[in-house]
Simulated assay, not measured.
Amino acid sequence: MTSTPLTIHESLREEIISRPDMILDDRDLMQALIAANERAMGGNIVDLRGIAMERLEIRLDRLEDTHRGVIAAAYENLAGTNQIHRAILRMLDPLEFEPFLRDLGGEVAEILRVDRVRLVLESAQNDSDPAIRRLGDVLSVAEPGFIESYVSDGRGAPRRPVTLRQLAGGDPAIFGDAATWVRSEACLRLDFGAGRLPGLLVLGSEDPHMFTPQQGTDLLAFFAGVFERAMRRWLA
């Protein structure tokens, strides 16, 4: 009657001796053993080693959480980089100006997953040019000084190449009829070179969390830099 429990006990003992990592790698088992050891020592004895292990476990949990966060951020950054690269390659395909701008509001916008793309060019002339009217869904012409006022929201904020912000509604001067449902935007300043007025590329989204001030802007700044260089070909 007693031989079976004894056999099981001996086999388990031999298994543990031959493979101690089986217990050392199991956190629940280790915690159970530490708790049993504390009970055996009594309540008047402070187990400093157990306290140290508990603190190490807490630090390990924090480290694992940080590790997972870093990996998630790296994957997100890689996905964003691939997205920008795809948009740039598509943007550089057209050989003429009008298809270049149409693609900007079409396939390029789809790749970037934004609902509206608008290019604002400052000019001392009016926008009565037929080409401008044909591209009115993407291109608009504004008076000199408009871009600085729009990006800074009239507050004279520091100049930044990319501004991300959430909106209660878009500006009709930029988004037209779509302004009522635009909830966030990215404003990319454009420098076309000496002697030329600046430009602004505005990405608008219905999602209020698409563009927020807490997000990084490196990829969008890179996109704006490539766009500037592409535009200089057409402005030359």
Rank of each mutant, 00 (worst) to 15 (best):
S3T: 12
L6D: 09
I8P: 01
I16H: 02
R19E: 00
P20L: 00
D21E: 15
I23W: 00
I23Y: 00
I23H: 00
D25R: 10
D26N: 15
D26P: 08
R27E: 14
Q31L: 15
Q31Y: 11
A32T: 14
A32N: 10
A36H: 14
N37D: 06
I45R: 11
R49Q: 05
G50V: 12
I51D: 14
A52V: 03
E54L: 12
R55Q: 14
E57Y: 11
R62F: 15
D65S: 09
T66R: 11
G69H: 10
I71G: 00
A72N: 08
E76K: 09
G80S: 13
T81E: 04
T81D: 01
Q83Y: 01
I84Y: 02
I88H: 05
L89F: 13
D93K: 10
P94E: 07
P94Y: 07
E98G: 00
G106T: 14
E107I: 08
E107M: 03
A109H: 13
A109S: 15
R113G: 04
R116D: 15
R116C: 10
L119T: 00
L119N: 00
L119G: 00
E122A: 12
E122N: 10
A131I: 14
A131L: 15
R134C: 01
G136M: 01
G136F: 04
F146T: 06
I147E: 01
E148N: 08
Y150D: 10
S152V: 11
S152N: 02
S152L: 02
G154F: 12
A157E: 09
R159T: 14
T163C: 03
R165G: 03
R165P: 01
F175A: 03
G176H: 05
T180I: 11
R183E: 10
S184V: 06
S184A: 05
L188E: 02
R189F: 02
R189E: 03
D191H: 10
D191R: 01
F192K: 05
G195R: 02
R196Y: 07
P198S: 07
P198T: 07
G199N: 06
L200D: 01
L201G: 05
S205Y: 11
P208E: 11
H209C: 05
M210S: 08
T212K: 03
P213S: 04
T217C: 12
L219N: 09
L220H: 10
A221F: 02
A221W: 02
F223E: 10
A224Q: 06
F227T: 15
E228P: 06
E228H: 05
